[in-house]
Design a protein around this nucleic acid. Structure first.
Length: 421
RNA sequence: GGGGCUGUAGCGCAGUUGGUUAGCGCGUCUCCCUGUCACGGAGAAGGUCGCGGGUUCGAGUCCCGUCAGCCCCGCCA
């Protein structure tokens, strides 16, 4: 007896073929006319005999193509309504809004499922990589007391008779915890109320965060980041060959060492290559990021490139300025395939300096009280980084829109269903 | 917030310089088929062309407005 969903039905009159699907794959069931009433996505229980197919009837395109099941009895367990689109195609031919409007159904398609198998491996590999380096996993809070960092917009929530916010980053908590556990990481949801309607932004994101103490320099953070990314790629390559093939995807090519350049060097390179002068800009634009990726690929043989030394004033108060030139910070973004994959850097660990910076940045002491407490009682030099799980998944598979890489994407216009209907 | 593009059957699309009955593929329904595996064959149903207004003898097509969607830019520790 085998139970599963009807993938497709091929009716030949006296003989009917059913492709039966369950979590392990698809197998062909040979039925009599009794199967005439079965439709796509019906859940059925088939009792019958597993038989080897005659040589001529072997389907080489199907992993189970050498066998088939001769049905003796078929019981319908659950019926399905008529499908809104064709699920039998190798590639679901629907537009993004349809893909998401029918999410419960589209997630049954093997090519859609592949996305989330890759994502699972990415997240699992992140955990493995850090546990192997003696990091401890922690659960970050989602409700936070105040907006401690400028920058990204935050969601406000009613918290009894008080106001609270949804966490836009576990940053302060993971840094704080370095004072307690030395090496920590978390896999957690973060929330951003940016009014951004783009192919790479979501309001609810899975963030892969790591932070550790006793670093000799910010380069230790960069190395740890590189180790983790390489480990993740290795696991995806090993465990997701089938999924990568479905998308014709290849993992980013990495040089022996991922090249690393400073923001100003990157801008100089872009100026020399394109004549576009962005040397005074405070950050790389999307086009700049694409150009620097082209450079990295051509000149250094690497699809990924670290860009460091962003402008101190543009970064949060806790980032460590470069002692050699405090205009720039010891923070680093990992850029690949034209977009940002992760960002990290060295943080301040000197209590007085953090206090001073907080004041300068306009951060109220009382809003970061718990964070500051940690640094009053001794914290080693520290740093860390964060990767976006959806962005990694998206760019590993070459998806066009990040919403495809989120099971239930939230954006300005959608929470499960479209908000403007 | 700025710009570009799109909106035609359940889904994906075509529709010429404005012209009389708006098409195609898939899916759905009926019938035929014992070897298909995206089965095949015959037939059928299914549309106020996003919505509102205008120009015109006549609008899916042109104009204005509006709503929705997609993409780019901006915003984005």
């Amino acid at each position: 007896t085998i139970k599963g969903w009807v993938n497709t039905r091929r009716d030949h009159g006296k003989i009917v073929f059913i492709d039966l699907r369950d979590r392990t794959g698809v197998v062909q069931v040979v039925c009599t006319e009794a199967a005439k009433d079965l439709r796509s996505e019906f859940v059925v229980s088939v009792t019958g005999l597993v038989k080897a197919r005659p040589e001529k009837l072997i389907n080489k395109n199907l992993p189970t193509g050498t066998i088939e099941i001769e049905a003796q009895e078929i019981e319908v367990i659950s019926q399905s309504e008529e499908l809104p689109f064709d699920m039998g195609k190798e590639v679901l031919d629907v537009e993004l809004p349809t893909l998401l409007d029918y999410r419960a159904l589209t997630l049954r398609h093997p090519r859609v499922q592949a996305i989330f198998k890759v994502q699972e491996v990415v997240i699992d590999a992140f955990r493995q990589a850090l546990k192997a380096r003696d990091f401890m996993e922690f659960q970050a809070p989602c409700i936070t007391p105040a907006v401690a960092e400028g920058g990204a917009e935050v969601f406000r929530v009613q918290y009894f008779e008080h106001e609270a916010y949804l966490s836009q980053s576990p940053q302060l908590y993971k840094s704080l915890l370095v004072g307690d556990f030395e090496r920590v990481f978390s896999v957690n949801k973060i929330f951003r109320a940016e009014p951004s309607v783009t192919t790479r932004h979501l309001t609810e994101v899975v963030s892969l965060d790591a932070e550790f103490g006793f670093i000799e320099s910010w380069l230790d953070v960069l190395e740890m980041q590189e180790y983790v990314v390489r480990f993740i790629f290795g696991q995806v390559e090993k465990k997701c060959a089938k999924e990568l093939e479905l998308y014709g995807a290849t993992l980013p090519k990495l040089a022996d060492k991922i090249p690393h350049i400073k923001l100003r060097e990157a801008q100089e390179i872009i100026y020399k290559r394109t004549g576009r002068d962005c040397r005074q800009e405070k950050d790389l634009s999307p086009e700049d990021e694409r150009e620097i990726c082209r450079w990295s690929r051509q000149e250094r043989g690497s699809d990924l490139v670290f860009v460091s030394h962003f402008i101190t004033k543009e970064k949060p108060f806790y980032i460590c300025p470069d002692p050699e030139d405090p205009t720039y910070v010891l923070s680093v973004d990992l850029i690949g395939r034209g977009v940002e994959w992760s960002s990290g850097g060295q943080r301040l660990n000197d209590y007085q300096q953090i206090l001073k910076n907080a004041k300068e940045w306009g951060v109220k002491e009382e809003d970061v009280e718990l964070y500051l407490q940690s640094f009053r009682y001794g914290v080693p030099p520290l740093g860390g980084f964060a990767l976006g799980a959806e962005r990694m998944t998206m760019h590993i598979l070459g998806l066009k829109n990040i919403r495809e890489a989120s099971l239930f994407p939230r954006d300005m216009e959608r929470i499960d269903v479209r908000l403007n209907r």
